[in-house]
């Protein structure tokens, strides 16, 4: 099963979300627990839960948010966060069925 990050995923292909990695400290700075909790909840609310299918429609540009179709709507996500979201292509072994199929 090939696991990659949403940031590295090809546009206009369906991927199944399998998890998210916590950001590592950068120059001694950390994202607060409360903020990270809220970010994860918001991601889950918008359809970025394990087993859910998402489609990246492409990055808006270097350093710009990535637009992703998930849970029936378009969501803009920071590129840094996209690099933490773990996905695998739909159809790989162990894959969950796509919603709506």
């Amino acid at each position: 099963m090939s696991i990659l990050t949403l940031g590295g995923a090809a546009p206009f292909r369906s991927y199944v979300v399998i998890g998210i990695a916590r950001p590592r400290d950068r120059r001694g700075e950390t994202i607060s627990d409360a903020s990270w909790r809220n970010t994860l909840i918001r991601l889950a609310e918008l359809g970025f839960s394990p087993g859910r299918t998402v489609v990246k429609t492409g990055s808006a540009g270097p350093g710009c948010p990535v637009i992703v179709l998930a849970g029936g709507s378009r969501t803009a996500i920071s590129p840094g966060l996209c690099d933490l979201i773990l996905v695998r292509p739909v159809g790989n072994a162990g894959g969950a069925a796509e919603p709506g199929t």
Binding site: I18, G19, A21, A44, E45, S49, R52, G71, G100
Partner: peptide, 27 residues
């Protein structure tokens, strides 16, 4: 959530059951 890789906060809620049931109903 079962099958989740990586970090998940202790007090965060798994909304997937609601979402999956909602999709079944919508279908």
């Amino acid at each position: 959530p079962t099958g989740w890789k990586g970090y998940w906060p202790r007090d965060a809620v798994d909304l997937r059951p609601y979402q999956e049931e909602a999709e079944r109903i919508a279908q």
